[in-house]
């Protein structure tokens, strides 16, 4: 398992990156943290002619908060984000999901933009981005556009980024009101690739009821899925276990998971239902306790 030969370039500015992307098109792959790409290179599943290393382009690694909107440069290391007070304060859901991304060694090197642009069906951050209606800032030579999270993840390992285009940063808008979040997942072992994961953000009204809900599941399809029906039930239903159960069942029905060697489709539905209940209970439990 050794990679095929490639040409290596390490531009030091965004302009250079975009020029190189323009020049090489699909023959090039961007190397961010490499925690997903390098295994594929080692297995020779991908064999680009050119590797454009973003690791020496400092302007892509930043975290800022503007009026509660967290902006994360694509090359921000996951561990940097995990430890950032700005992330914890402005986007606690992201902070909660990050520890599920592999081990410390992976997060030390892996990047926020890398895992999002890689768009693995079992990656956590796409679900977070979808739940929070994140905005993806994509740049190519001479232009920039914004892609909504709902439009960004097309299928497994495929995003809306076009040839010559690079993910520059992601904007995670702060949700309104009294906002609480949870990230839960279950796998065949206690840590590692999940079977299903769920990102949840609830707005809790003064009387303790759910005023708004955002739920997004991963591992239930080729791309993360927003669970609108379940969200609606949580907002409309009376407080209590019946509503939780109904929301879980609605979530299970809203997805169209596959069977694979790790789990059955039936199980993925059951798990999605369970995780909806767990996430909401965790949030309401914390809310009650705080």
């Amino acid at each position: 398992m050794k990679p095929a030969p490639f040409e290596y370039v390490s531009p030091e500015s965004e302009e250079e990156v975009l020029d190189l992307l323009h020049q090489h098109g699909d023959d090039a792959r961007l190397l961010a943290g490499g925690q997903s790409l390098v295994p594929m290179l080692n297995l020779r599943i991908v064999q680009p002619e050119v590797i454009i290393d973003l690791g020496r382009c400092p302007s892509l690694a930043f975290i800022s908060a503007e009026n509660g909107t967290l902006v994360c440069g694509a090359m921000t290391r996951q561990m940097t984000a995990e430890r950032s007070p700005a992330v914890r304060e402005n986007c606690p859901l992201l902070a909660k999901a990050l520890p599920y991304l592999g081990g410390t060694a992976h997060r030390n090197r892996g990047t926020v933009g890398g895992t999002l642009a890689h768009a693995d069906r079992l990656a956590e951050l796409p679900a977070v981005a979808l739940a929070l209606d994140a905005e993806f800032i994509a740049r190519k030579s001479g232009s920039e556009r914004m892609i909504a999270a709902a439009d960004f993840f097309l299928t497994d390992l495929t995003t809306a980024l076009e040839e010559g285009e690079m993910l520059h940063s992601i904007r995670l808008p702060r949700a309104d009101g009294n906002h609480h979040t949870a990230f839960v997942e279950v796998g065949n072992r206690r840590h590692g690739f999940a079977i299903v994961g769920l990102a949840a953000a609830l707005e809790i009204a003064a009387d303790g009821t759910v005023a708004g809900a955002r739920l997004a599941a991963m591992g239930v399809g080729a791309a993360p899925v927003r669970l609108h029906e379940a969200e609606q039930i949580l907002v409309d239903g009376p407080a209590g276990d019946d509503t939780l159960r109904a929301a879980g069942e609605a979530a299970a029905q809203a997805i169209d998971p596959d069977d694979d060697i790790h789990a059955s489709a039936v199980y993925r539905r059951r798990l999605t239902s369970t995780l909806v209940r767990r996430a909401v209970q965790e949030i309401l439990g914390n809310e009650a306790g705080s």
Binding site: A252, R270, L271
Partner: peptide, 19 residues
Amino acid sequence: LRPSRIADIIDAALGTNSA
């Protein structure tokens, strides 16, 4: 006995499918 199989066994025993 992975979680998926255990869930199937429970469903079969209880005659349920919780989803």
